[in-house]
Computed example of a mutant assay.
Amino acid sequence: METETALKVLSALGHESRLAAFRILVQAGPDGLPVGELRERLDIPAATLTAHLNVLRAAALVTDQREGRVIRVRAHYAQMDSLIGYLTDNCCGGLADCGPARTCAPAPRKKKASP
């Protein structure tokens, strides 16, 4: 990740509502959430959420997909991992095993029990 991109991503996360939205989407996993459900969880007006999602989209932190009349929004884990990598790239002077260097991926889905 380039410094300019890192600044854009950090700036996008530098607002309480955007950070909260992104964290909710990370917790939601790869299926993401319908925009309406995200709005309800955040308890903010729809127009405000739209503006915040546009900032997160511009920073490539979220993606969305239309499903009929519903727009589903998802966290972009690769962008999050790139930011973490950028921030920890020179951790401990470049020494191996200096800290909790790991990448994030959604937890594996639990299989539904068969009846």
Rank of each mutant, 00 (worst) to 15 (best):
A107R: 07
Q65D: 03
K112I: 06
L13G: 15
K110M: 07
G36M: 02
T50W: 09
E37V: 08
I24F: 04
V35T: 09
V62H: 07
A28C: 09
R74L: 09
R109L: 01
M80D: 00
N54L: 02
P34S: 11
L95Y: 07
L87G: 08
G93I: 00
P108S: 00
V73G: 08
G29E: 02
Q79I: 14
P100L: 12
A28P: 13
A46R: 14
R23P: 13
I44T: 14
G29Q: 01
H52A: 10
F22M: 10
D97M: 02
A60D: 15
L42M: 08
E2C: 04
L33E: 15
D89W: 09
R41P: 11
Q79F: 05
I71T: 12
R41F: 06
L38W: 00
L25A: 10
T88L: 05
A28Q: 06
L33N: 10
R66E: 15
I24R: 01
Q27G: 03
Q27F: 06
L19Y: 11
N54M: 07
V62A: 15
R72N: 06
G14H: 12
D81F: 08
Y77A: 11
C98D: 02
K111S: 03
G32L: 04
R18N: 08
P108G: 03
A6D: 09
L10S: 09
G14A: 13
R39P: 01
G32H: 12
L56F: 09
H15D: 12
A20W: 08
D43C: 10
K110G: 10
D89F: 13
V55K: 04
T63N: 14
N54D: 05
E67T: 15
T103Q: 11
R39M: 01
G36I: 01
R74K: 01
A60S: 12
V9L: 06
T48S: 02
K111A: 01
A75K: 01
K111V: 00
Y86V: 10
L87V: 09
T103K: 04
A113C: 00
A20G: 13
E37Y: 06
D64P: 15
Q79G: 10
A96W: 03
R74S: 14
M1L: 11
K8W: 01
P100T: 14
H15A: 14
K8H: 07
P106S: 10
V73E: 14
R23L: 14
A113N: 00
K111M: 01
P106M: 01
A21F: 04
R23Q: 11
G36E: 02
D43E: 10
R69I: 00
R57V: 05
L19Q: 05
E4P: 07
A75S: 10
